[in-house]
Amino acid sequence: MISNVYPYQFQAAKVRSELIRMFPISLFVVAFGAAFGLAAVQKGLGPLESILMSTLVFAGASQFAAIDMWGAEVSVIPVMVVVFAINSRHLLMGASLYPILKDVSPAKRYGLMLLLTDANWAVSAQEYQSGRRNLEVILGGGLVLWLAWIVGTWLGVYFGGLLQNPKSLGMDMVLGCFLLAMALGGKKNPRVLVAWALAAVASLAAWKWLPANTHVVAGALAGGLVGLFWLENKPVDEDAEAPV
C-alpha cells in the first residue's frame, strides 16, 4: 500500500444535498444562536465580540457556559476547563470518524474537523455503522450549521428582545430529539444494546457524582469498552464458500 494515496473522493453534488438536508436543523440552530446572542450582550459582551465568538469557537453549549462565567474580570483557567470538558466529546467524535478521515489528506482532514458539530457528526457516524462513508455531510452540513450559528447570534445580538421564550415551544429539545433519532436509526444488535445500557448507567453516574460536564465522555468510553471486549462476528469473507 502506498502511504500517500487518499482514495476518498468528495462529490460536489452530495455536499450540496447534505447542505440541504441539514437546512431544517439549521433553522433551529438560528434560534439557539439568537438565544446565545441575547445572553451574551446581556452579560456585557459587545455585539461584534459575540458574533466573533460564535464564528471562531462554534461550539454552542461551551459558549453558553463560558458567558455564564463572564463579568468585569474572567478567570481564565476555569473557563478553559469548562470549555474543554464540554467540548471533549469532540475528541471521541473525531476519533470515531478516523477510519474514513484517514482516506483524505491531512489538510482536508483537519479542515473538516473545524466544521464538526453534534448534528453532522451524528449523521456521518450513523451512516458509517450501516457501511456508508459520508464526509460530505460534515462539510455541507457543517457549513450550513456554522452559518446558521453566526446568523442566529447576529439576530440575537441586535433583535434578541423580540425573541419569545423558545423553551415554551420545545425548541430547546430539537437537538436532543435529533440525536436520539440518529441513535435509534442506527444499527441495533445485542452488542450495541449492551453498550448503550452501560453508557446510560455510566453517564448518569458521572452526571451525579463526577465533576460537571464529564458525563458524555464517561458514558461514551464505558459503551466503547463493550466494543473493545465484545467483537462483532464479521460475516466471513464473501468470496469464501459460505453455507447457503
Binding site: L92, M93, P99, A125, Y128, Q129, A202, V216, L221, G227
Partner: peptide, 14 residues
Amino acid sequence: SFINTMASSVLIAI
C-alpha cells in the same frame, strides 16, 4: 469495534 460502539454510546451519554 471500540470506536464504533463508543460512537453510538456518545449519543446515549448525551
